[in-house]
Structures are given as C-alpha cells and as structure tokens.
C-alpha cells in the first residue's frame, strides 16, 4: 500500500504526517513535489498542512491551481482516498473536491491549542476505527479555519452523513465555547459525496506519537491502514 504526501512550496507539516502514517503501519510513503506529476499507484493521497504559496491570494487558492492538483482531482474521482489536513483541507475546498469555504478565525488571530472533536460518523475509510460520538483530543493550528457553507449544502451534508468531526468539549457536548474558530455548526471535518475525500482543520497527525503525550489522533490513520490493506 502506497501513500503519496504532496509537497507544495510552503507546505510544512509533511514530517508530522509521515510520522503518523508510519506509526499506523502505512510505511510506504513518498513526498511528491507539486511539479512532479506522479501519483500513479498511490492508494492514498495526503495534502498536509502548511502555508502553500505563503497563503497569498487566499489560503490554498494558488496550490489548487498547481499541476499536481489536476491529477489529485482525477484520482479522487476514481475513488482513491484523499486526506487534506489544515492547509490541505483549504486546498481541497479551493479545488472543488469539497464544498464550502474556510474563513478567517472569528478571533482574527492564528490559534494553536488542543481541542476536542466529536466523531460524527464512523462510516468512512478515515473514521471506521472510531465509534460514532467518540471524543478525540487533537490540536488545531491555523488562522483561517472558520468553516462556512450555504444552508442547502449543510443540509445535504447532514442528510448524507458527511460531517466527520465537530468541535466539542471534553464530555462531547457541541457548544459555542468549544468552537475555536467560529465554524458553522462547529464543523471540523467533512467528507465528499463518495466518502473517499476527507478534509479537516485539526491535526490528528500531531496526536499519534508517545512523545506527543496522546495517541488520540491515531485511529484516523489506523482506519486508513485497515481500509487500504
């Protein structure tokens, strides 16, 4: 099983992602430079966090126009699993693989902190190792993570069980106080219609190592490991 981690100019969480995949047993990982159009044979495509193109114009907007993204879109349409975290989520939204938009945090400041996420669905290759309602603790680190989508889009996503994670408190209550960035409906992560593309703002990859003090994010990668083997 092969995982391709795409590196754009300004991507910076590729080592974190590599660590997480390896810990879950996905050891065949390759860093793919965005100008090298080589996703052939990848069973999993990962868009990690960072500041692609310095967040200039709009977060993810320029990376979405990068040559490799045509291929990512094509592979996603074929059913290959695509995971986008943080800036990766922003790129997936900008490339049209996921709906909605990511706005400036409501505090207007970059925020890095541990948050709790409520698993809304275990019905995906990314969340199968979690149970519905299970709370995990992972960090966020972003300035533009305030998810927004039109009411009809939200309704469609809810009807199709496509909300993957919502921000919640330690007990799993989805409250405004537990919402770090103002995301509509406390949405932290969403799936596409075919359920093979997940975008999320928080960083499960930073909760997968012993020295990080928690393995709370590991089930996301273990789910993928299981789905792909």
């Amino acid at each position: 099983m092969k995982a391709a981690i795409i590196v754009f100019p300004g991507t910076n969480r590729e080592p974190d992602m590599t660590q997480a995949l390896h810990r879950a047993g996905i050891v065949d990982t390759t860093l793919v430079w965005h100008k090298d159009n080589d996703l052939k044979g990848a069973d999993l495509i990962v868009l990690p966090g960072g500041f692609s193109y310095g967040d200039y114009l709009r977060c993810g907007a320029m990376a979405a126009q990068s040559p490799v993204m045509k291929d990512v879109v094509a592979q996603a349409k074929r059913g290959v699993r695509v995971l986008g975290v943080c800036n990766g989520f922003q790129i997936l939204v900008e490339s049209g693989l996921l709906p909605g938009a990511l706005l400036r945090n409501r505090s207007l400041k970059f925020i890095c902190k541990q948050v709790h996420l409520k698993t809304e669905t275990s019905g995906s290759a990314f969340t199968a190792a979690l149970t519905q309602g299970q709370v995990i603790r992972v960090p966020v680190a972003h300035g533009e993570g305030n998810y927004f989508a039109a009411p009809e889009t939200l309704r469609a996503m809810e009807d199709q069980d496509r909300i993957a994670f919502r921000y919640c408190d330690a007990d799993g209550a989805v409250t405004d106080a537990a919402n770090p960035n103002g995301s509509i409906g406390n949405i932290a992560g969403i799936l596409n219609e075919n359920r093979n593309v997940l975008g999320m703002m928080p960083h499960p990859e930073n909760a997968t190592q012993d020295h990080q003090g928690t393995l709370s994010g590991l089930p996301v990668f273990e789910s993928l490991m299981k789905a792909l083997s």
């Binding site: 910076n12 969480r13 080592p15 974190d16 660590q19 997480a20 966090g49 400041k109 970059f110 925020i111 890095c112 902190k113 960090p139 680190a141 960083h203 990859e205 930073n206 190592q209 020295h211 990080q212 003090g213």
Partner: peptide, 14 residues
C-alpha cells in the same frame, strides 16, 4: 501570546 504561536509543527515538541 503563545496560542498565536504554532508550537507543535514538525511533531517533535515534548
């Protein structure tokens, strides 16, 4: 102050 700093990137912060 420090919640504006990404102290975790690279995944090695103990």
């Amino acid at each position: 102050i420090w919640e504006q700093y990404d102290s975790l990137v690279r995944g090695e912060t103990v």
